Computed example of a mutant assay.
Amino acid sequence: MPIRIPDDLPARRVLENEGIAVMDSTRAARQDIRPLQIGLLNLMPNKQRTETQFARLIGSTPLQVDVTLVRITDHLSKNTPQEYLDTFYQTWEDVRSRKFDGFIVTGAPIANIPFEEVRYWQEMVEIMDWTQTNVHHTMFICWGAQAALHHFHGVRRYRMPHKAFGVYRHKVVNTRAPYLRGFSDDLAVPVSRYNDIDRSSLPEDLEILIDSAEVGICMLDDPRHRAVHMLNHFEYDHTSLAEEYERDIGAGMTIDPPVDLFPNNDPTQVPENRWRSHAFLLFQNWINEIYQTTHYDLDQIGS
């Protein structure tokens, strides 16, 4: 079954051109099944690119999925027109009474700010607590993962000497984890972050699923909070890291090209995507696990 997103959302044209099955509201209404309800709290500045990246991965499942785009209630975006947000996004206040089978919290470009000093931190705390009563399973990503680990577990983070920036080799720690079915033992993962988490502060009930000797933990399972924490960016396009590099160079920053992104480490060449298959597999596994375990009656979620 295809993914269902707003009919006029720009991501629809991109996904259809890539061969991703996208369903309109009329066709969806004719199908006598309950679609999975997935919410995407998009904290990234480039909303359109981020929503397309996640819709691409969510749309790879054979199940029918309804995606709701969510934003922070009072935060004014500097990069996305308000008309676009009003048309395609709901605020968290709009959806807080709803139940979701799955919910994704993205990263945010605020790595240098202590959590409690983030302007919308109080709403983030309310959202994270809300996932425990209104969401069957949550995927926290990058800054979102660090925030959830801090809030739920008191996990400490620290500033790394140098930004982890590029495509790094990782190892699957638990091949039996349902989210990693079919994964290779060794895989490439895009990484772009200044901070890492302190392993010594991890509680025993968090399980490391994917790890790297070079750039640290990639993915953690948090069964007590029905969540996984993904510290890196499987959702990235092949150009995402290159665009970050060009942006920083254009801003006058001194920064090395992303590690192992370009062929022969030559920034003039087209970047290669060596994580795409694992990205699709991760989201297929995640959605399948939600489908196998969620309630048919949405009202029963969190009970």
Rank of each mutant, 00 (worst) to 15 (best):
D7T: 10
D7C: 04
L9I: 11
R12Q: 04
M23C: 10
M23W: 04
D24W: 04
S25M: 04
T26I: 13
R27T: 14
R27K: 11
A28M: 10
A29V: 05
R30D: 11
L36A: 07
Q37V: 05
G39K: 13
G39C: 14
N42W: 14
N42I: 14
P45H: 07
Q48S: 01
Q48C: 04
T50K: 07
E51D: 13
E51L: 10
A55S: 12
L57M: 14
T61K: 00
T61V: 11
T61E: 02
Q64G: 06
V65A: 04
T68L: 09
T68K: 08
V70F: 00
L76N: 12
Q82R: 09
Y84R: 11
D86R: 10
Y89N: 10
T91Q: 07
E93M: 03
D94H: 03
D94G: 00
D94L: 00
R96V: 04
S97W: 05
R98K: 13
K99R: 15
F100C: 07
G102A: 07
T106K: 06
I110F: 09
P114E: 12
P114S: 07
P114H: 05
E116I: 02
E116Y: 08
E117S: 11
W121I: 08
M124E: 08
I127L: 07
W130C: 09
N134A: 14
V135I: 07
H137L: 09
T138I: 09
M139P: 07
G144Y: 00
G144P: 01
Q146V: 02
A147T: 01
G154A: 11
R156N: 07
R156P: 03
Y158V: 00
R159F: 07
R159V: 05
M160Q: 12
A164Y: 07
K171Q: 12
T175P: 01
A177P: 06
L180F: 08
D185W: 05
D186Y: 14
D186W: 13
P190T: 10
V191P: 01
R193W: 03
N195R: 06
D196K: 09
D196L: 08
I197Q: 08
D198G: 03
R199K: 11
R199C: 01
P203T: 00
D205F: 01
I208K: 03
I208L: 06
D211M: 03
S212G: 06
G216A: 02
C218Q: 13
C218N: 12
D221N: 04
D222Y: 01
R224T: 06
A227I: 02
V228K: 00
E243A: 13
E243T: 01
E243L: 08
E243S: 13
E246I: 01
A251I: 00
G252C: 09
I255D: 02
D256Q: 11
P258D: 01
V259N: 11
D260N: 12
N264T: 04
P267F: 09
P271Q: 13
E272M: 11
R276F: 09
H278G: 00
F283H: 14
Q284C: 13
Q284H: 13
I287H: 04
N288K: 14
Y296A: 02
I301E: 12
S303V: 08
S303H: 13
